[in-house]
Design a protein around this nucleic acid. Structure first.
Lengths: 193, 193
DNA sequence: GGCATTCACCTAATAGCTTTAGGCATTTGG
DNA sequence: CCAAATGCCTAAAGCTATTAGGTGAATGCC
Protein backbone atom coordinates (compact mmCIF):
# COMPACT_ATOMS: atom_id res chain seq x y z
CA UNK A 1 0.00 0.00 0.00
CA UNK A 2 1.66 3.17 -1.19
CA UNK A 3 1.02 6.02 1.17
CA UNK A 4 -0.33 9.20 -0.26
CA UNK A 5 1.58 11.42 2.15
CA UNK A 6 -1.37 13.40 3.40
CA UNK A 7 -0.82 16.25 5.81
CA UNK A 8 -3.11 19.05 6.90
CA UNK A 9 -0.87 21.45 4.99
CA UNK A 10 -0.96 19.57 1.73
CA UNK A 11 -4.69 19.10 2.07
CA UNK A 12 -5.17 22.78 2.72
CA UNK A 13 -3.10 23.78 -0.26
CA UNK A 14 -4.88 21.32 -2.51
CA UNK A 15 -8.16 22.55 -1.12
CA UNK A 16 -7.22 26.08 -2.08
CA UNK A 17 -6.45 24.98 -5.61
CA UNK A 18 -9.69 23.08 -5.76
CA UNK A 19 -11.52 26.19 -4.57
CA UNK A 20 -10.02 28.22 -7.40
CA UNK A 21 -11.09 25.61 -9.90
CA UNK A 22 -14.61 24.81 -8.79
CA UNK A 23 -15.53 27.55 -6.34
CA UNK A 24 -15.06 27.70 -2.61
CA UNK A 25 -18.49 26.37 -1.76
CA UNK A 26 -17.92 23.35 -3.97
CA UNK A 27 -14.91 22.36 -1.92
CA UNK A 28 -15.81 19.06 -0.41
CA UNK A 29 -13.95 16.45 1.57
CA UNK A 30 -14.96 13.90 -1.03
CA UNK A 31 -13.62 15.92 -3.94
CA UNK A 32 -10.39 16.46 -2.09
CA UNK A 33 -10.04 12.73 -1.42
CA UNK A 34 -10.60 12.04 -5.10
CA UNK A 35 -7.85 14.47 -5.94
CA UNK A 36 -5.41 12.52 -3.79
CA UNK A 37 -6.81 9.23 -5.03
CA UNK A 38 -7.54 8.18 -1.53
CA UNK A 39 -10.68 7.12 0.32
CA UNK A 40 -12.73 9.85 1.94
CA UNK A 41 -12.41 8.54 5.46
CA UNK A 42 -8.64 8.82 5.26
CA UNK A 43 -8.83 12.59 5.32
CA UNK A 44 -10.42 12.55 8.72
CA UNK A 45 -7.11 11.63 10.30
CA UNK A 46 -5.81 15.00 9.17
CA UNK A 47 -8.90 17.18 9.28
CA UNK A 48 -11.42 17.46 12.04
CA UNK A 49 -14.25 17.78 9.58
CA UNK A 50 -15.49 19.64 6.56
CA UNK A 51 -15.73 22.95 8.38
CA UNK A 52 -12.17 22.52 9.57
CA UNK A 53 -11.04 22.14 5.99
CA UNK A 54 -12.82 25.31 4.94
CA UNK A 55 -11.40 27.21 7.87
CA UNK A 56 -7.87 26.08 7.06
CA UNK A 57 -8.27 27.20 3.48
CA UNK A 58 -9.56 30.56 4.68
CA UNK A 59 -6.62 31.02 7.03
CA UNK A 60 -4.21 30.00 4.31
CA UNK A 61 -5.70 32.48 1.86
CA UNK A 62 -5.68 35.27 4.43
CA UNK A 63 -1.97 34.66 5.05
CA UNK A 64 -1.13 34.50 1.40
CA UNK A 65 -3.03 37.67 0.62
CA UNK A 66 -1.54 39.49 3.60
CA UNK A 67 1.94 38.54 2.42
CA UNK A 68 1.25 39.90 -1.02
CA UNK A 69 -0.18 43.10 0.34
CA UNK A 70 2.78 43.55 2.65
CA UNK A 71 5.17 43.11 -0.26
CA UNK A 72 3.20 45.52 -2.42
CA UNK A 73 3.05 48.13 0.29
CA UNK A 74 6.78 48.16 1.03
CA UNK A 75 8.25 51.58 0.45
CA UNK A 76 5.04 53.21 -0.73
CA UNK A 77 2.88 55.91 0.75
CA UNK A 78 -0.09 58.05 -0.14
CA UNK A 79 -1.93 57.32 -3.35
CA UNK A 80 0.79 54.89 -4.32
CA UNK A 81 0.19 52.80 -1.26
CA UNK A 82 -3.54 53.02 -1.70
CA UNK A 83 -3.31 51.78 -5.27
CA UNK A 84 -0.85 49.05 -4.39
CA UNK A 85 -3.10 47.79 -1.66
CA UNK A 86 -6.22 47.89 -3.77
CA UNK A 87 -4.63 46.35 -6.82
CA UNK A 88 -3.17 43.52 -4.82
CA UNK A 89 -6.58 42.72 -3.46
CA UNK A 90 -8.23 42.85 -6.82
CA UNK A 91 -5.52 40.88 -8.59
CA UNK A 92 -5.62 38.21 -5.95
CA UNK A 93 -9.35 37.84 -6.35
CA UNK A 94 -9.02 37.55 -10.11
CA UNK A 95 -6.15 35.12 -9.92
CA UNK A 96 -7.58 33.04 -7.08
CA UNK A 97 -11.34 33.48 -6.95
CA UNK A 98 -11.85 30.49 -4.71
CA UNK A 99 -9.23 31.58 -2.22
CA UNK A 100 -10.60 35.09 -2.24
CA UNK A 101 -14.05 33.72 -1.49
CA UNK A 102 -12.46 31.73 1.32
CA UNK A 103 -11.16 34.91 2.95
CA UNK A 104 -14.80 35.94 3.36
CA UNK A 105 -15.59 32.90 5.47
CA UNK A 106 -16.91 33.91 8.84
CA UNK A 107 -14.42 32.81 11.47
CA UNK A 108 -15.24 32.49 15.11
CA UNK A 109 -13.77 35.39 17.13
CA UNK A 110 -10.76 33.59 18.57
CA UNK A 111 -9.77 32.09 15.25
CA UNK A 112 -10.18 35.49 13.64
CA UNK A 113 -7.92 37.09 16.23
CA UNK A 114 -5.22 34.53 15.57
CA UNK A 115 -5.54 34.91 11.81
CA UNK A 116 -3.82 37.13 9.31
CA UNK A 117 -6.99 39.20 9.32
CA UNK A 118 -5.28 41.19 12.01
CA UNK A 119 -2.42 42.01 9.65
CA UNK A 120 -4.91 43.13 7.04
CA UNK A 121 -6.42 45.57 9.47
CA UNK A 122 -2.98 46.86 10.48
CA UNK A 123 -1.93 47.35 6.89
CA UNK A 124 -5.08 49.22 6.05
CA UNK A 125 -4.32 51.55 8.95
CA UNK A 126 -0.77 51.87 7.72
CA UNK A 127 -1.96 53.25 4.42
CA UNK A 128 -3.84 55.97 6.19
CA UNK A 129 -0.70 57.09 7.96
CA UNK A 130 0.06 59.11 4.86
CA UNK A 131 -3.22 60.96 5.17
CA UNK A 132 -3.07 62.51 8.55
CA UNK A 133 -6.41 61.40 9.94
CA UNK A 134 -7.14 61.36 13.63
CA UNK A 135 -9.43 59.00 15.46
CA UNK A 136 -12.22 58.27 15.06
CA UNK A 137 -11.96 59.39 11.43
CA UNK A 138 -9.18 56.90 10.89
CA UNK A 139 -11.41 54.03 11.87
CA UNK A 140 -14.18 55.32 9.66
CA UNK A 141 -11.73 55.53 6.79
CA UNK A 142 -10.44 52.03 7.43
CA UNK A 143 -13.98 50.76 7.21
CA UNK A 144 -14.69 52.71 4.10
CA UNK A 145 -11.62 51.46 2.31
CA UNK A 146 -12.36 47.91 3.30
CA UNK A 147 -15.90 48.30 2.09
CA UNK A 148 -15.00 49.77 -1.26
CA UNK A 149 -12.30 47.27 -2.03
CA UNK A 150 -14.20 44.23 -0.91
CA UNK A 151 -17.40 45.49 -2.43
CA UNK A 152 -15.87 46.32 -5.76
CA UNK A 153 -14.01 43.06 -6.08
CA UNK A 154 -16.99 41.09 -5.03
CA UNK A 155 -19.41 42.82 -7.39
CA UNK A 156 -16.94 42.65 -10.25
CA UNK A 157 -16.43 38.93 -9.70
CA UNK A 158 -20.18 38.41 -9.56
CA UNK A 159 -20.48 40.01 -12.97
CA UNK A 160 -22.54 42.91 -11.67
CA UNK A 161 -20.52 45.37 -13.74
CA UNK A 162 -20.67 43.50 -16.99
CA UNK A 163 -23.99 44.97 -18.04
CA UNK A 164 -22.48 48.37 -18.73
CA UNK A 165 -19.89 48.80 -21.45
CA UNK A 166 -17.64 51.06 -19.39
CA UNK A 167 -14.27 49.48 -18.71
CA UNK A 168 -13.90 48.24 -15.18
CA UNK A 169 -10.23 49.17 -15.09
CA UNK A 170 -11.18 52.74 -15.76
CA UNK A 171 -13.75 52.72 -12.98
CA UNK A 172 -11.21 51.24 -10.63
CA UNK A 173 -8.75 54.02 -11.34
CA UNK A 174 -11.48 56.64 -10.98
CA UNK A 175 -12.47 55.22 -7.64
CA UNK A 176 -8.89 55.18 -6.39
CA UNK A 177 -8.47 58.78 -7.44
CA UNK A 178 -11.66 59.68 -5.68
CA UNK A 179 -10.67 57.97 -2.47
CA UNK A 180 -7.26 59.55 -2.56
CA UNK A 181 -8.77 62.99 -3.08
CA UNK A 182 -11.26 62.37 -0.34
CA UNK A 183 -8.66 61.30 2.19
CA UNK A 184 -6.33 64.11 1.26
CA UNK A 185 -9.03 66.71 1.46
CA UNK A 186 -8.58 67.22 5.20
CA UNK A 187 -8.87 65.74 8.64
CA UNK A 188 -12.62 65.89 8.32
CA UNK A 189 -14.92 66.91 11.13
CA UNK A 190 -17.28 64.43 12.69
CA UNK A 191 -20.59 64.00 10.94
CA UNK A 192 -23.47 66.13 12.18
CA UNK A 193 -25.78 63.17 12.78
CA UNK B 1 -55.14 13.37 2.86
CA UNK B 2 -55.16 17.05 3.74
CA UNK B 3 -53.36 19.06 1.12
CA UNK B 4 -50.68 21.38 2.25
CA UNK B 5 -51.43 23.95 -0.43
CA UNK B 6 -47.96 24.23 -1.82
CA UNK B 7 -47.25 26.73 -4.55
CA UNK B 8 -43.98 28.08 -5.88
CA UNK B 9 -44.85 31.43 -4.30
CA UNK B 10 -45.53 30.06 -0.84
CA UNK B 11 -42.41 27.94 -1.05
CA UNK B 12 -40.36 30.92 -2.08
CA UNK B 13 -41.66 33.06 0.73
CA UNK B 14 -41.12 30.30 3.28
CA UNK B 15 -37.67 29.76 1.82
CA UNK B 16 -36.90 33.42 2.39
CA UNK B 17 -38.00 33.15 6.00
CA UNK B 18 -35.94 30.04 6.41
CA UNK B 19 -32.96 31.85 4.96
CA UNK B 20 -33.32 34.62 7.51
CA UNK B 21 -33.44 32.08 10.30
CA UNK B 22 -30.69 29.67 9.36
CA UNK B 23 -28.71 31.45 6.65
CA UNK B 24 -29.16 31.41 2.92
CA UNK B 25 -26.73 28.59 2.27
CA UNK B 26 -28.52 26.39 4.77
CA UNK B 27 -31.72 26.65 2.79
CA UNK B 28 -32.41 23.17 1.64
CA UNK B 29 -35.30 21.46 -0.09
CA UNK B 30 -35.45 19.02 2.79
CA UNK B 31 -35.67 21.71 5.43
CA UNK B 32 -38.39 23.45 3.49
CA UNK B 33 -40.38 20.23 3.18
CA UNK B 34 -40.06 19.73 6.92
CA UNK B 35 -41.40 23.21 7.48
CA UNK B 36 -44.53 22.34 5.49
CA UNK B 37 -44.70 18.92 7.09
CA UNK B 38 -44.61 17.29 3.73
CA UNK B 39 -42.33 14.75 2.07
CA UNK B 40 -39.35 16.11 0.23
CA UNK B 41 -40.32 14.72 -3.14
CA UNK B 42 -43.57 16.69 -3.05
CA UNK B 43 -41.72 19.94 -3.52
CA UNK B 44 -40.40 18.82 -6.85
CA UNK B 45 -43.81 19.36 -8.41
CA UNK B 46 -43.46 23.03 -7.64
CA UNK B 47 -39.72 23.56 -7.92
CA UNK B 48 -37.39 22.39 -10.62
CA UNK B 49 -34.66 21.68 -8.13
CA UNK B 50 -32.63 23.10 -5.33
CA UNK B 51 -31.02 25.73 -7.49
CA UNK B 52 -34.41 26.82 -8.71
CA UNK B 53 -35.50 27.37 -5.13
CA UNK B 54 -32.47 29.49 -4.39
CA UNK B 55 -32.95 31.52 -7.54
CA UNK B 56 -36.58 32.18 -6.68
CA UNK B 57 -35.63 33.37 -3.23
CA UNK B 58 -33.00 35.64 -4.75
CA UNK B 59 -35.48 37.15 -7.21
CA UNK B 60 -38.01 37.60 -4.45
CA UNK B 61 -35.51 39.38 -2.24
CA UNK B 62 -34.34 41.59 -5.08
CA UNK B 63 -37.93 42.67 -5.73
CA UNK B 64 -38.63 43.27 -2.09
CA UNK B 65 -35.51 45.31 -1.61
CA UNK B 66 -36.09 47.29 -4.80
CA UNK B 67 -39.60 48.14 -3.61
CA UNK B 68 -38.27 49.39 -0.33
CA UNK B 69 -35.58 51.44 -1.98
CA UNK B 70 -38.08 52.94 -4.39
CA UNK B 71 -40.35 53.93 -1.53
CA UNK B 72 -37.45 55.41 0.42
CA UNK B 73 -36.20 57.37 -2.54
CA UNK B 74 -39.53 58.98 -3.38
CA UNK B 75 -39.29 62.74 -3.21
CA UNK B 76 -35.68 62.86 -2.13
CA UNK B 77 -32.57 64.14 -3.84
CA UNK B 78 -28.92 64.77 -3.11
CA UNK B 79 -27.54 63.64 0.21
CA UNK B 80 -31.02 62.81 1.36
CA UNK B 81 -31.52 60.38 -1.44
CA UNK B 82 -28.07 58.94 -0.94
CA UNK B 83 -28.74 58.31 2.74
CA UNK B 84 -32.20 56.92 2.09
CA UNK B 85 -30.82 54.48 -0.43
CA UNK B 86 -27.93 53.41 1.73
CA UNK B 87 -29.97 53.08 4.90
CA UNK B 88 -32.60 51.01 3.17
CA UNK B 89 -29.94 48.62 1.99
CA UNK B 90 -28.33 48.36 5.36
CA UNK B 91 -31.59 48.01 7.26
CA UNK B 92 -32.77 45.31 4.91
CA UNK B 93 -29.59 43.34 5.45
CA UNK B 94 -29.91 43.63 9.20
CA UNK B 95 -33.57 42.75 9.21
CA UNK B 96 -33.31 39.98 6.64
CA UNK B 97 -29.78 38.65 6.55
CA UNK B 98 -30.73 35.54 4.64
CA UNK B 99 -32.63 37.43 2.00
CA UNK B 100 -29.84 39.92 1.68
CA UNK B 101 -27.40 37.08 1.15
CA UNK B 102 -29.78 35.74 -1.47
CA UNK B 103 -29.54 38.96 -3.45
CA UNK B 104 -25.85 38.19 -3.89
CA UNK B 105 -26.57 34.91 -5.66
CA UNK B 106 -25.04 34.85 -9.08
CA UNK B 107 -27.83 34.73 -11.63
CA UNK B 108 -27.35 33.69 -15.20
CA UNK B 109 -27.41 36.70 -17.54
CA UNK B 110 -30.95 36.33 -18.86
CA UNK B 111 -32.41 35.80 -15.41
CA UNK B 112 -30.48 38.79 -14.16
CA UNK B 113 -31.83 40.95 -16.95
CA UNK B 114 -35.39 39.99 -16.10
CA UNK B 115 -34.82 40.55 -12.39
CA UNK B 116 -35.29 43.56 -10.18
CA UNK B 117 -31.52 43.95 -10.34
CA UNK B 118 -32.22 46.21 -13.26
CA UNK B 119 -34.33 48.48 -11.07
CA UNK B 120 -31.54 48.62 -8.53
CA UNK B 121 -29.15 49.86 -11.17
CA UNK B 122 -31.66 52.43 -12.38
CA UNK B 123 -32.29 53.73 -8.91
CA UNK B 124 -28.59 54.06 -8.20
CA UNK B 125 -28.30 56.14 -11.34
CA UNK B 126 -31.30 58.16 -10.23
CA UNK B 127 -29.52 59.19 -7.07
CA UNK B 128 -26.67 60.58 -9.08
CA UNK B 129 -29.02 62.79 -11.03
CA UNK B 130 -28.71 65.26 -8.20
CA UNK B 131 -24.94 65.37 -8.60
CA UNK B 132 -24.46 66.46 -12.14
CA UNK B 133 -22.04 63.81 -13.31
CA UNK B 134 -21.48 63.05 -16.98
CA UNK B 135 -20.57 59.73 -18.49
CA UNK B 136 -18.39 57.85 -17.94
CA UNK B 137 -18.03 59.35 -14.46
CA UNK B 138 -21.61 58.48 -13.72
CA UNK B 139 -20.95 54.81 -14.32
CA UNK B 140 -17.83 54.96 -12.21
CA UNK B 141 -19.85 56.54 -9.44
CA UNK B 142 -22.59 53.95 -9.73
CA UNK B 143 -19.99 51.27 -9.29
CA UNK B 144 -18.39 53.01 -6.37
CA UNK B 145 -21.66 53.48 -4.54
CA UNK B 146 -22.64 49.89 -5.15
CA UNK B 147 -19.25 48.77 -3.90
CA UNK B 148 -19.31 50.83 -0.73
CA UNK B 149 -22.83 49.92 0.24
CA UNK B 150 -22.53 46.26 -0.51
CA UNK B 151 -19.07 46.08 0.95
CA UNK B 152 -19.98 47.86 4.14
CA UNK B 153 -23.10 45.86 4.74
CA UNK B 154 -21.36 42.64 3.98
CA UNK B 155 -18.37 43.35 6.22
CA UNK B 156 -20.57 44.61 9.01
CA UNK B 157 -22.72 41.49 8.84
CA UNK B 158 -19.62 39.33 8.86
CA UNK B 159 -18.55 40.97 12.09
CA UNK B 160 -15.43 42.49 10.56
CA UNK B 161 -16.06 45.78 12.28
CA UNK B 162 -16.69 44.42 15.71
CA UNK B 163 -13.02 44.33 16.70
CA UNK B 164 -12.84 48.09 16.97
CA UNK B 165 -14.89 49.95 19.57
CA UNK B 166 -15.93 52.73 17.21
CA UNK B 167 -19.67 52.76 16.62
CA UNK B 168 -20.64 51.45 13.22
CA UNK B 169 -23.51 53.91 12.95
CA UNK B 170 -21.02 56.71 13.25
CA UNK B 171 -18.82 55.24 10.56
CA UNK B 172 -21.81 54.81 8.31
CA UNK B 173 -22.73 58.49 8.66
CA UNK B 174 -19.14 59.52 8.11
CA UNK B 175 -18.97 57.48 4.94
CA UNK B 176 -22.22 58.91 3.62
CA UNK B 177 -20.95 62.40 4.28
CA UNK B 178 -17.73 61.59 2.52
CA UNK B 179 -19.46 60.17 -0.51
CA UNK B 180 -21.78 63.12 -0.68
CA UNK B 181 -18.88 65.55 -0.48
CA UNK B 182 -17.01 63.59 -3.07
CA UNK B 183 -19.86 63.56 -5.54
CA UNK B 184 -20.66 67.18 -4.97
CA UNK B 185 -17.07 68.26 -5.33
CA UNK B 186 -17.34 68.52 -9.13
CA UNK B 187 -17.91 66.75 -12.38
CA UNK B 188 -14.52 65.18 -12.03
CA UNK B 189 -12.10 64.79 -14.92
CA UNK B 190 -11.15 61.40 -16.17
CA UNK B 191 -8.33 59.68 -14.36
CA UNK B 192 -4.89 60.14 -15.79
CA UNK B 193 -4.19 56.42 -16.04
C1' DG C 1 -74.66 12.85 -10.59
C1' DG C 2 -71.26 10.05 -12.65
C1' DC C 3 -67.06 9.60 -14.89
C1' DA C 4 -62.52 11.04 -16.55
C1' DT C 5 -58.83 13.86 -15.93
C1' DT C 6 -55.80 16.54 -13.49
C1' DC C 7 -53.51 17.71 -9.50
C1' DA C 8 -51.24 17.28 -5.08
C1' DC C 9 -48.83 14.58 -2.43
C1' DC C 10 -46.85 9.95 -1.41
C1' DT C 11 -43.64 5.69 -1.48
C1' DA C 12 -39.59 3.78 -3.26
C1' DA C 13 -35.16 3.91 -5.02
C1' DT C 14 -30.60 5.73 -6.57
C1' DA C 15 -26.74 8.49 -5.77
C1' DG C 16 -23.49 11.71 -3.42
C1' DC C 17 -21.41 13.92 0.78
C1' DT C 18 -20.26 13.58 5.91
C1' DT C 19 -18.75 11.39 9.70
C1' DT C 20 -17.59 7.59 13.04
C1' DA C 21 -15.77 2.95 14.30
C1' DG C 22 -12.74 -0.43 13.87
C1' DG C 23 -8.98 -3.07 11.19
C1' DC C 24 -4.58 -4.11 8.87
C1' DA C 25 -0.19 -2.84 7.12
C1' DT C 26 3.73 0.03 7.13
C1' DT C 27 6.91 2.85 9.38
C1' DT C 28 9.59 4.19 13.31
C1' DG C 29 12.27 3.97 17.34
C1' DG C 30 13.93 1.77 21.47
C1' DC D 1 13.98 -6.91 15.81
C1' DC D 2 9.91 -6.18 17.95
C1' DA D 3 6.28 -2.82 19.72
C1' DA D 4 3.96 1.10 19.24
C1' DA D 5 2.35 4.61 16.47
C1' DT D 6 0.80 6.03 12.16
C1' DG D 7 -1.57 6.02 7.66
C1' DC D 8 -4.92 4.45 4.98
C1' DC D 9 -8.83 1.19 4.37
C1' DT D 10 -13.62 -1.10 4.77
C1' DA D 11 -18.07 -0.73 6.67
C1' DA D 12 -21.95 1.59 8.05
C1' DA D 13 -25.34 5.18 9.30
C1' DG D 14 -27.45 9.57 8.42
C1' DC D 15 -28.61 13.46 5.61
C1' DT D 16 -29.58 15.85 1.05
C1' DA D 17 -30.99 15.76 -3.95
C1' DT D 18 -33.52 13.91 -7.50
C1' DT D 19 -36.37 10.75 -10.41
C1' DA D 20 -40.12 7.38 -11.31
C1' DG D 21 -44.28 5.85 -10.62
C1' DG D 22 -48.67 5.38 -7.59
C1' DT D 23 -53.02 6.86 -5.14
C1' DG D 24 -56.64 9.60 -3.60
C1' DA D 25 -58.96 14.16 -3.85
C1' DA D 26 -60.64 17.89 -6.57
C1' DT D 27 -62.36 19.55 -10.98
C1' DG D 28 -64.82 19.72 -15.15
C1' DC D 29 -67.66 17.90 -18.59
C1' DC D 30 -71.83 15.50 -20.25
Amino acid sequence: MVRAGLTPERLTRAGAELADEVGFDQVTVSALARRFDVKVASLYSHLKNSQDLRTRIALFALEELADRVAAALAGRAGRDALAAFADTYRDYAREHPGRYAATRLRLDPETALASAGVRHAQMTRAILRGYDLTEPAQTHAVRMLGSVFHGYVSLEMAGSFSHTPVDTQESWAWILDSLDALLRSRPRPDPHR
